Computed example of a mutant assay.
Amino acid sequence: VENASFMPWLVGVALIHSLSVSEKRGAFKHWTVLLAISGFSLSLLGTFLVRSGILTSVHSFASDPARGLFILIFLIIVVGGSLILYAFRANQMSSNSSFSILSRESTLLVNNILLVAAMLSVFLGTLYPLLLDALNLGKISVGAPYFDAVFVPIMVPAVIVMAIAPILRWKKDNKSRLANELTAVCIGAILLLLVSLLLSNNIYILLAYFL
């Protein structure tokens, strides 16, 4: 059930990043529209999962198959209608904005791809067991081992990119300036870690300070 709200959250974070690029540079317009459609669609999907009784959990709401069917039909209409409108209007969202590989736009694009990949991993882990059960192909349980093996390797580089992106300049940056900025940040983080070592022996507090 928690995954039902986590999936639109991941897409929403990617949408916020994409909106910042669209506002500042006029790029990522297609990304922004598709992420907005996906975020709302996943919110409806989460509502369907927790209201229809498909998922059994103490955190799910009242089971009502009739209401679940209504939400499912509404979801199909929203997704289908939105994609049809996008297909007709996509050619009107042209952008002449360009940027180099070493720029804030590039890192935000990589971050968006990683966040969407993370969402798809959660999507697969949530719906795959339900699909197998619906097709009478058996019952499986997808738990922490799957998400540790799939989700964590995706989010580790995403966190690294999130740390680098705010340092980079829009459109184009240079390696020497970035190296100097990263050096200063790393030195500051190491000093903060050393101070934390003197003040606390709790490894979790130290890790939080370092991050």
Rank of each mutant, 00 (worst) to 15 (best):
D148G: 04
G46E: 04
I154P: 05
K24D: 06
A118E: 07
L75M: 06
V152C: 13
S121P: 02
L49Y: 01
D173N: 12
N174S: 08
V156G: 06
A149M: 13
L75H: 01
G138W: 10
F48N: 04
L114K: 04
A189N: 11
I187V: 15
F123E: 01
M162A: 15
S176W: 13
Y204C: 00
L42P: 00
I140R: 05
A208R: 08
G81C: 12
A165H: 04
Y204S: 06
V152N: 08
K175D: 07
R89P: 01
A144W: 02
Y209K: 12
S57M: 01
I187D: 13
A66L: 14
A62F: 14
L83Y: 10
Y86P: 09
L35M: 06
I113H: 02
G26E: 03
A165P: 03
K171T: 02
S38E: 09
F151S: 05
L124T: 15
N111S: 06
I54P: 00
L191M: 10
E2A: 14
L207H: 09
R104H: 08
I164Y: 13
S60F: 00
S82E: 03
V150Y: 08
V185L: 14
S100G: 01
I101F: 09
L137Y: 04
N3D: 14
N136M: 09
I160F: 07
N136V: 08
M93H: 12
F99G: 12
K172S: 11
